[in-house]
């Protein structure tokens, strides 16, 4: 069974014919070629497939594409603007909060949500915010350090 859905992906409106049994992750990666969103555990436990849906981070492997109909989706490809890295991406680079890079798109997106809601989080709040994102390089210290460096900045956007 197929269905037409409307998505706004990184600011662009799309009308797509999708299989009702496709996950949003599969549609993003395979139909739209947005491979920045990673497939990790495919069970919603690792957070590698995180995208922002109407501003909230959700594991796209655990969401049917048809359930995202009419929603606004932000993937890692939409975070940088006009070829310029987002402040979060800059700081992750500077602080070495990026090793193999597989968890990074998800980490950046949950960080964005965290800072949008609470521009000045403390360490505990940061740890709670990234609790659903696993870094198998175990580079958590640098990731937390990077987010701490962003805390309190006036304009993270």
């Amino acid at each position: 069974m197929k269905k037409v859905i409307k998505l706004t992906v990184n600011g662009m409106e799309k009308e797509l014919l999708v299989d009702v049994h496709s996950t949003l992750l599969d549609v993003l990666r395979e139909d739209l070629g947005l491979k920045g969103t990673k497939k990790g555990c495919n069970q919603g436990e690792c957070g590698a497939c995180t995208v922002l849906i109407d501003g909230n981070p959700v594991p796209s492997c655990s969401l049917l594409a048809v359930k995202a109909d009419g929603k606004d989706v932000l993937t890692i490809e939409g975070v940088a603007e006009a070829g310029k890295l987002h402040a979060i991406q800059e700081v992750f680079n500077e602080k070495g909060a990026i090793q193999c890079g597989f968890c990074t798109p998800g980490m950046i997106l949950v960080t964005k949500k965290l800072l949008d809601d609470n521009p000045n989080p403390d360490e505990q709040e940061i740890k709670e915010a990234i609790a659903g994102n696993i870094c198998r390089c175990t580079g958590y210290a640098q990731i937390i350090e990077a987010i701490m460096a962003l805390a309190g900045r006036k304009q993270v956007r």
Binding site: T50, P57, V110, A131
Partner: peptide, 9 residues
């Protein structure tokens, strides 16, 4: 329950 990401859903 679960993680922050799953609780949105």
């Amino acid at each position: 329950v679960a993680s922050p990401l799953l609780r949105y859903q």
